[in-house]
Computed example of a mutant assay.
Amino acid sequence: MLSPVTDTDGAPFWEYTARGELRVQACGECGEPRFPPRPCCPHCRSFTCEWRPTAGRGRIWSYVRPHPPLLPDYAAQAPYHVILVELDELPRIRLVGNLVGAPGAALNSVTESRVRIGARVRMVPDPGTGLPQWILERP
């Protein structure tokens, strides 16, 4: 499976998700949240930042169901769902991840009939990689 590629600005995001926390970078001056993480606030141009905890809950804003051919590590689990999640507390922040049936479940563990725009989800870290994954709040 793929592992996150970290950089200085995004490293804290991956450290928090590996611990089961979903945090979003925010400007230390004006408080504006931003994702993906970056060194400078696009609103006030400050270089200070903080990592704010979120509840890790949201709704499916969009999704796609990839089919082979894919990266070799993912081809055996295709088709599966990649979702774009709009966070409850920060509706302008949208995160991409896989929809799975349970923490650590296979990528293809959710049937297509259960996926819909607007469905409520919560973040769970993949036990092997720490990547944020999402499960339905109403299984």
Rank of each mutant, 00 (worst) to 15 (best):
L87F: 05
Y80V: 03
S3W: 06
L70Y: 09
L22P: 03
G104M: 04
R65M: 13
R45S: 08
R59F: 00
V96K: 00
I83T: 06
E50R: 15
R59S: 15
I60R: 05
V115E: 03
A105R: 09
N108R: 00
P125G: 06
T48D: 13
E89Q: 05
Q25V: 07
P53W: 13
L95S: 02
E137L: 03
S3G: 06
C27M: 09
R57M: 14
I60S: 09
A18D: 01
P37Q: 01
R57C: 15
E21K: 11
L22E: 00
A105M: 04
V82H: 06
F35H: 15
V121C: 06
F13K: 06
G118I: 06
T54W: 07
L22F: 09
R120T: 02
P103H: 01
R57Y: 03
G31S: 06
N108M: 03
T8S: 10
A106G: 07
R94I: 06
S109W: 14
P53L: 05
A26S: 14
L70I: 11
R138E: 10
Y63E: 10
F35S: 04
H67P: 00
L71E: 15
Y80R: 00
V100N: 02
D73N: 11
P12L: 06
P139F: 07
N108G: 04
Q133G: 12
V64S: 15
A119E: 13
E15W: 08
D7H: 07
P37M: 01
S113T: 13
Y63C: 07
H43P: 02
F13L: 01
D126E: 12
R59K: 12
Y63M: 10
P33F: 07
P103A: 06
S113D: 15
W61E: 15
Y80D: 02
V124S: 05
